[in-house]
């Protein structure tokens, strides 16, 4: 019974939504407000080789990405705080030799590719978070195949509380630096290209490493 009721409700909701969607400006037309307003300004001002999405992410709308990095950190501390008490015994998986070998072989290349994605994020496709996802995935892969102990080995113990906050802390540093050099927080100084580049890469690195540590700790918190 509940299924049918829910289906009726969902279709009921869908009808006005579809009608509204149909009335939106034509999909893909170049003269709709999306392309003629703010976006056109970004594209015209773009330097000759840059990943505009990362530029929007870090430069124009840096605050959103700062918020996003804080959101993932909030998820981590929320998960840590609400865990049920009492430790569950760790199921020690016994990996088949083939899978074990492949994972051990692939791990360093994974890491290399992840850092490539992080570091070249501001010119080529990629970026801090994408890199974090790859690195986090790497740690999880090892954890699933060799057991949480191996995944925990990836994470430094003493510096962990600092490292997991790397994302927001990097943004705070960039914010202060930007404030000093350009007079506005989170502003990247165009007149000092070296510092501009360094800040971009620094923030990307912070997001990448911080995100990877958070993803790993989320996995460990649920696993252990």
């Amino acid at each position: 019974m509940k299924g049918r009721l829910a289906a009726a409700f969902a279709t009921g909701v869908s009808i006005p939504m579809i009608a509204a969607m149909a009335a939106l400006p034509r999909h893909g037309s170049p003269d709709q407000p999306i392309h003629t307003h703010v976006a056109r300004h970004y594209i015209e001002q773009a330097p000759e080789s840059a990943n505009l999405v990362t530029q929007v992410l870090l430069d124009y709308r840096g605050m959103d990405t700062f918020g996003e990095v804080v959101v993932i950190f909030a998820a981590l501390v929320a998960v840590l705080v609400l865990r049920a008490r009492g430790e569950r015994p760790l199921p020690a998986p016994s990996p088949s030799p083939i899978v074990g070998f492949i994972v051990r072989l692939v791990t360093p290349f994974f890491a290399l590719f992840a850092f490539h994605v992080i570091l070249t994020g501001h010119e080529a496709p990629g970026g801090g978070l994408q890199g974090a996802a790859i690195l986090g995935g790497l740690v999880l892969m090892n954890g699933i195949v060799f057991g949480p102990e191996r995944a925990r080995a990836f994470l430094p113990t003493r510096a962990l509380p600092w490292l997991q906050g790397a994302g927001p802390l990097a943004f705070l540093a960039a914010g202060i630096l930007g404030g000093i050099t350009t007079g506005f927080a989170l502003g990247y100084p165009a007149h000092l290209p070296v510092l501009h580049e360094a800040m971009l890469v620094g923030v990307e690195l912070g997001i990448g490493i911080g995100g990877a540590v958070i993803f790993s700790r989320l996995y460990l918190a649920m696993e252990a």
Binding site: R61, T65, G67
Partner: peptide, 9 residues
């Protein structure tokens, strides 16, 4: 580029 940035977040 803006929608892509929004969706990433």
């Amino acid at each position: 580029p803006i929608p892509h940035a929004l969706v990433l977040t």
